[in-house]
Amino acid sequence: MGFANENQRIVFITGKGGVGKSAIAAAIAQKYALGGAKTLLVELGEHSYFEHVYRRPIRYEPTEIKPNFYISLWSGEPCLREYVFHLIRVKKIVDLFFENKIMRTFIRAAPALKELAVLGKITSGIRKWGPPLDFDYIVIDAFSSGHFMALLRAPKGMADLIAAGPMGEQSRLIDEVLRRTNLCEFKIVTLPEELPVSEAIELHSELVAEMGQSAEIICNRVYQSALSEGDVKGFQANTNDRATRDFTDFLLRTLEGQKTNLSELKSAHPGFETRPFIFSAQGLEVINQLQLSKDHHAATF
């Protein structure tokens, strides 16, 4: 089946908590924008992280950060409100609906309602449903692994639950967009550490099995030393100083641990990409450096 606008592309960025999803998502979005594509970077949830990074207020409606580059913060309630308004079209009833105390309690706790509304918003440009979403790329700084899969399962769950009616219909269409390889792509961010690597591999197979979607794996914070292991071992052999021994030990352990985890990742996904460890504590500087960094293919390791 064809959708109204198949020129838009949705890019989901996920991975274990703490691997640098947001920075990678922003770097990717900045790169698209620089290449001339009109790009919207989307944060999910109630609080904006990028507000602190770019020092601009980030809201539901897109904020222009630089040419072609916009950021939005989409949380459940405004997405749901927009959805309800689009169906009901009478502002007074919509207000009544959201002001009703019991309905508020229900919406707060009701399973999958808000998640569906968020996914509905994300896919609304492609489906040309609701207010126009005029972008070439929608880059989603998505939830971490477990919550992300739960989010993706919501439309199918709802479509199975209510076959008939508007919500069932919407859920079915959202689910279909999510499964289309020409419309949605997935990137899993990981680190050269044991837990993030195993979680990335697991998440990848879940995506394939449940959504029929493959994902690119990006290993972030790969330490690229100017010194080889041999160099470091040489320095270590030639010193009696405690500090030097400890530091060279630290370098060797870091390099070895990294090698082990990268080869673990490589045996499951030979084609993964890497991004360098950025020696900066400033969010924006990390993003800008990541944007400039070359995609090092796994083969270099």
Partner: peptide, 11 residues
């Protein structure tokens, strides 16, 4: 009835 309109009768 607004809820019914957005979700459907099965829901």
């Amino acid at each position: 009835s607004a809820l019914e309109r957005i979700t459907g009768s099965t829901f």
